[in-house]
Design a protein around this nucleic acid. Structure first.
Lengths: 315, 315
DNA sequence: GCCGATCTTGCTCATATGAGCAGGAGCCTC
DNA sequence: GAGGCTCCTGCTCATATGAGCAAGATCGGC
């Protein structure tokens, strides 16, 4: 395109998009035929001079979702827009909202839903609308008795999701990480506990988040790990944790000994699942999101625009 | 609008603007009539959820130009978009380009054009295309022999504008500020110099910029004033200078003694002029831009989006 | 619970826009 | 400088969209 045409296409775009003039009126103003104006506008679009953004907390990026699906082979991808996001809290809320929306619209409605716990899952439970399902069994899939902060958050999340879905909940009565393997095996061998794990392993869908491996990890807040222990995991290649289990960028368990003491369903259950919904957003979670998606831990990813872009680039 | 309608309008907007679907297709997807879809899209626009931006160095903001004209009573206003601006240099270039465009399109073509000098004017002279006018007399309206940096810039500017406009140039052979009033009067009384000032005073149009009053002022670079002297002017209320003369926020000369020693046409000439084009952009020039416009020093302002917004708010 | 007021819906019709095509201008090749 | 090629222009026609309107739904007041 010639330089003068480029300038004309900008003038035309201003009149068309800012001033709401018709192509015919623009033709009169710029002394062009209306067909020429139409072509100039088409060129302006094709050259990327026209940027259209939907600014709303519920806005999604369908184009990026499509790219993400085809780049990663995910069954589904939900990408929330970052346009107009003010802080990370806002972004978390948007993502949780999108997850709640997705869960509400999920068909078939899962009979048994396995969930992890944490900040993200709690937010989702808050955003869910009463009546989102009619009779859903919610079961925790990893140990979740918090040691320090916000006791009962894990339980409250499961309870809320179940109640709003007019269903039952089943808690996993165990800490996330035990100090000794023997303790873990002892708890796991308990009939009632084993039944919960069994139910978790046969869930028809999973909903979980993931944590990044750094000093801000929920495991540190909850008192299961010290910052030093997390640093050590990072040195071994950990990028984050999924249902309590720390993995490297290839999706492999980084510390088998620690993993043995971690209570919950094994990651293989997620990889085998027909519907495993991961909800991961925020700039600090790019690495763990990448690992989760590329190692096949989820079939559906709900995330933000920036994380999605990083993922597409990586895949 | 109800909450559910708001969400639907966002979904519709995504499909319409991102996926290029027709309203009819969207109707099928969302199980709505195409008329409902049309209304939802109209609501999304009305609520400001749809943001359309023209991303191009030559893009202008016609809506803001209109607001600026009606808020200030300017005869004309040119506002360049800041969308996609990377640094202040980029912004300066865009503004200079807009000024060159404006000058080229100015009707009637000025027979005599009075110009100031400086970074902005120089940029404009570079952006002007050969043949922008056919025979224009360019005359300097303020003293412009630079003492330190870039000697000859002021002259080069006038020469370039005149040559590209197939016309003559007339330089004002004097420093911007004289050390003694007597010297200034002596120079001014010289027949040939007086003729230049006379020509400057009767120009059919003026094109000038303005400088902010701070240590980065062109007067400091050029060696006419020390940073201390500028600080002193600021204490007296100076917000910047126009054709070398420092004014306060009301457009009044802040230091009459200094002004007596400043060489060039008086500001009253600009205020009386039928066409006085001020080119002022950048975040540091909001105050001086405000003073120039509100005190009637220009009839036309060429500026950037942010400065324009600040001006509209102030007026 | 009835009635009027107001808001929403689905339509008809007018207008705006995009696809596709024939003719023509400009340009390169020989 | 002729011929053929490509690209551009202005058109016709099909489609998409917006304005305006009448019927229906909803709501509050009594």
């Amino acid at each position: 395109m010639t330089d003068i045409d480029e300038l004309l296409s900008i003038r035309a775009a201003e009149l068309y998009y800012e001033e709401d003039k018709t192509q015919d009126e623009i033709g009169t103003i710029l002394r062009l035929t209306r067909w020429k104006v139409g072509r100039l506008l088409a060129q302006a679009k094709a050259n990327g001079f026209i940027r259209i953004e939907i600014v709303h907390p519920r806005a999604r990026r369908l184009g990026i979702e499509r790219q993400l699906r085809s780049a990663t082979g995910l069954a589904d991808a939900i990408v929330v827009s970052t346009a107009g996001v003010v802080d990370e809290l806002d972004l978390q809320k948007r993502t949780a909202q999108a997850a709640a929306d997705y869960l509400s619209a999920l068909r078939p409605v899962p009979r048994t839903l396995g969930i992890s716990w944490g900040r993200t899952l709690y937010d989702i439970s808050v955003q869910l609308k009463p009546g989102w399902a009619s009779g859903v069994n919610v079961v925790q899939i990893n140990g979740g008795v918090s040691l320090n902060a916000r006791p009962g958050t894990a339980a409250a999340t499961a309870v809320s999701i179940a109640q709003k879905g007019a269903g039952q909940f089943t808690l996993l009565p165990s800490p996330a990480i035990l100090e000794r393997v023997e303790t873990k095996l002892a708890i796991a061998s308990d009939r009632s506990v084993a039944a919960v794990l069994e139910m978790g392993s046969s869930a028809s869908a999973y909903l979980f988040s993931a944590g990044q491996a750094d000093a801000g990890s929920a495991h540190v807040d909850s008192g299961y790990l010290t910052p030093d222990q997390v640093d050590e995991l990072v040195r071994k290649g950990a990028v984050g944790d999924v249902v309590g289990r720390f993995i490297d960028s290839a999706g492999q368990i980084v510390d088998p000994a620690l993993d043995e003491r971690t209570f919950g369903i094994p990651l293989e259950q997620l990889r085998r699942a027909k519907t495993a919904i991961a909800v991961i957003s925020g700039p600090r979670k790019h690495a763990i999101a990448r690992s989760v998606v590329l190692s096949g831990l989820c079939t559906v990813l709900i995330t933000d625009e920036d994380t999605a872009q990083a993922l597409i680039k990586a895949a």
